[in-house]
Amino acid sequence: MTATVERGAAPVVGIRGLSLTYERGGSRTEVLRNLDLAVHPGEFVAIVGESGVGKSTLLRVIMNLASPSAGTVTIHAPPDDGRAGGGRPESALVFQDARLLPWRSVLDNVTFGLEWRGVSRAERRRRGEAMLALVGLSELAARWPHQLSGGQRQRVSLARALAVEPAVLLMDEPFSALDSFTREGLQDELLRIRAATGRTVLFVTHDIDEAVYLADRVVVLAGQPAGIAAEIRVDTAQPRRRADPVLSAFAHQLRLELSRRSSDL
């Protein structure tokens, strides 16, 4: 099935003219310059780029963990989603290194983002358990994070992000630290969850095959300072086959773009 992408509707994430300069001890590094990007409702967008190009920085700006030097980021949550709990953020991030809170049980990690006034304990628990079921970890609700494997940790991190029902789910190379077997399993799981929940996803990776396998659209971030250098729509319906030559063709095209961009520098 293909996710329905509403082209006409306001984008969930609207980035306009975004620039960001890190300043540290007098030295300035401009990381992002004049970047425009729109992610539409229900869309799965992947961002690929070399290490150090500014992918995490871009996500940090969207999460309001870093402030841009210029430009705007708007997140547009659907008005009718009836989310309880004021102050709750509209985007949620799955970190590259899971970053579970080690003093909380698996279930309490998942409900972390729901601890707002207006969300009752019972409601939190119910939602947390539902999210754990969604990522297939119901059995492990009472465990401590140190008792989990790397892949399980990343699933809990995903459940924690999904629990807040974000308008956009941001993922920062969430599977890159895992072995290829676990990684492929989690990729399929993510696609299943995305199909089930209809979440809008912005997914950062440096793995081109992963981007092409998962996303509706792949955006290449390149340059120093970085901007959007190329964009490819992966016009193949889900579910996809990893070995599909059509995907390989898209991947090849992306590799060309990336190498062209880095030789331009």
Partner: peptide
């Protein structure tokens, strides 16, 4: 990084930072 997790989920006040992250992590 732990403090960033709290911020990412919207817990940005000093008090929230203390209760959600600093105290348990410093225990």
């Amino acid at each position: 990084d732990m403090i960033e997790v709290a911020q990412a989920f919207g817990f940005r006040s000093a008090f929230a930072r203390l209760v959600k992250i600093l105290l348990p992590a410093a225990t």
